[in-house]
Each structure stands twice: as C-alpha cells, then as structure tokens.
Design a protein around this nucleic acid. Structure first.
Lengths: 165, 165
DNA sequence: GCTTTATAGGTTATAATATAACACATTGAA
DNA sequence: TTCAATGTGTTATATTATAACCTATAAAGC
C-alpha cells in the first residue's frame, strides 16, 4: 500500500489519488470488457472527491446537475456495477460507499473510519484476514464475505479532540 | 466460550440457551439498577428464540400479540436499551439484531453468519481484536468500535449445499 | 403517604435507505 | 441490419429508522 492511498497520511495528494483511481478504473473495465458508462464514471468520480464514504442519496444532486436522471435506481445501479468491479466498497455500518484504491484483484477491504472527520482508509488486511479465517476454521465455518469496519479517531482528529474538546 | 452458546454446535440445547440468557439479563439489570421492563424482556426473549438475527420489524407482530403497542419506536427503544446493556448486538450487514451470550462485560462481538440458514455465532475475538488494534496502531488510529461480520457457510449448510446444491 | 422528577411507553408522522417493475434506448454481435 | 443483451428513465413502493410530543408509571425525597 502506498502512503498516498491513505486518507490520513500527512503527504496525501488527493488530486493524484482521484486521477489514479479513474485511470485505473478505465483500464480495468477495458480489460474486462465492462462498460464504464458516463453515469458510472461520474459516480465513481464523485465518490473519489473525498475519502469520506458517501451515501447514495448524496450523489443524486450531482447527477442531476450533470444532466442525468437523478432517481435513486440510477445511482444504485451505478454503485452496484462499481461494487461488482471492485471499484467501490460499501460500508455497512454507515450505509455509504467509498472508493477502493486497489481494484486490480477482487477483495473485501477492512476499514478504519474516523468518527470525527469521517475519513476512511482501507487496511491491508492480511493479518486480520488470517485471524478471521483461523477463528472461522476452528468452528468449521467457510468464510465467503468479510465485513470489517473499525470506527475511532484518526491521528489528526486525536490531536484536535485533545486541544479543543 | 462454552460449546452450547454456539449456534452451529451439534450439541446445542436451545431452550437452555434462552433460559440462561434471560436469567443472566435479569441478574445484570438488577445489579446495574436498570429496568428490564416487560417490553424489554419480551423483545430480548423474542430475539433469543433463535440464533438468527431478527429485524426490528419482525418483532412487531409478536409485540402486538402480547398486547403491547406495536409501532416501530416501541421496538427500537427496547433494542436500544438492550444494546446499551450489551444484551443484544446489531448486525450492520443485515440490519438485524442478535442476542449476546456474554453480556457480563461490555464488548463488541465478531460474528459468523451463515448465508444459508442465517445462524449466527459470536466469536471469542481476542486474536481478531489484536490484529485490528495492531493494524490501526500502525497508522496511529485510535480504535473505538469494531464491526466484524463474516458471512459464509456453517458446517451443517456446507454438507447440505454439497449434497443438494 | 404525597409530591416531585425522571424514565418509560403510546401515538402520529416522516426521514433515510433501497428495490421492484416495466418501458425505452443503446450497444455489440450475428 | 436485425437481434439479443445491456443500460437507462420513470413511477411506485418496500424497508429500516427516528423525530416530536404527550401520557403513564416508577423511584426518590420530603
């Protein structure tokens, strides 16, 4: 994981982050013969405007502005496609969606979510994944899907809370 | 963790499980000077009827039958109280609630959820917790809340799927 | 016991999130 | 160029959750 994919890294260059995500998405969809249509690309771009997970309904106004239909099914369809391609993840504990920095190979992320600034980072989850697999295997349980969402305070917000409550 | 708190254990005695949960709940609330009112106790009992997480709206008919008001706020209030006391957990990925077998000390569980029979077991999550803490600490992130929900197939359902698709 | 205060529950309305169903348009392939 | 598959528009509705306000009940102090 490169530092600049981390929302709370001090050296985070977000424009680079967005550009990279979109370029990668186009490339991946081309390779997989999947159609990254204007709506889908716009939704992905909107989600990548920040590292804060966005709710589906928060995306609708921007879709309307761009001249698209802005009824819920439009955005949910785009999100469904993006999730299938691994380009975004859904955060179950927030009912919201966030861009995936590593869509090359399908996976389910583990997330650190700051309750104060809402910034969310995807963890490189090998050890977490291993711990889950092991606990599951001990009970004979076959793991198919993992939802790992950790809420707390990012480094920046720890400082902020400390100084002004 | 005793075997009989595990939903997919072969020797699971569910009536014992329910009785134990209710007895423990009464004891805990007494100790904490919290009121386990009839509605709250009924909701807890309903949730413990199975190890399948139940949605809030699934509880309403039974509340109505028991002569209580059955508007949503009634059940959400009871669930909020039960969660605060650690007697039930909310499963974010299902929007549903499940009984907690170890409410004595507050914690947030890790769950194994069978996608076929919906049975859900709470893991003793020390190693998972440690892995999360470690990953978070490496980024300077302060953990406050953990949502760990693993979906897959329980041992029974693995056999079933294998034999009749 | 009575009064006061806090907590719990009843009730109505509505917010927030998500999907069903069907018609029409566009794309890509035969 | 026609067909089949996929994507989008549109309307309606399902599902999950909370706000707001009022009444009832419990517990705590006098």
């Amino acid at each position: 994981m490169t530092t600049d994919s981390l929302a709370f890294a001090a050296d985070h260059n977000h424009q680079h982050c967005i550009d990279q995500a979109l370029t990668l998405a186009r490339q991946i969809c081309r390779e997989r013969r999947q159609r990254l249509t204007p709506i889908r690309e716009l939704v992905l771009k909107l989600i990548w405007q920040s590292h804060q997970p966005l709710g589906a309904y928060e995306l609708l106004p921007a879709l309307a502005e761009a001249g698209f239909n802005s009824a819920p099914p439009t955005v949910y369809r785009a999100l469904e496609f993006l999730q299938q391609q691994g380009l975004v993840h859904r955060i179950a504990s927030l009912n919201a969606f966030v861009g995936c920095p590593h869509p090359e190979h399908p996976h389910q992320g583990s997330f650190l979510i700051c309750r104060r600034c809402r910034s969310t980072s995807e963890l490189d989850s090998a050890s977490i994944h291993a711990a889950l697999e092991q606990s599951a295997a001990a009970l004979g349980f076959l793991v198919e899907q993992e939802t790992v969402e950790v809420t707390g305070l990012c480094p920046n917000c720890q400082r902020q809370e400390h100084s002004h409550g």
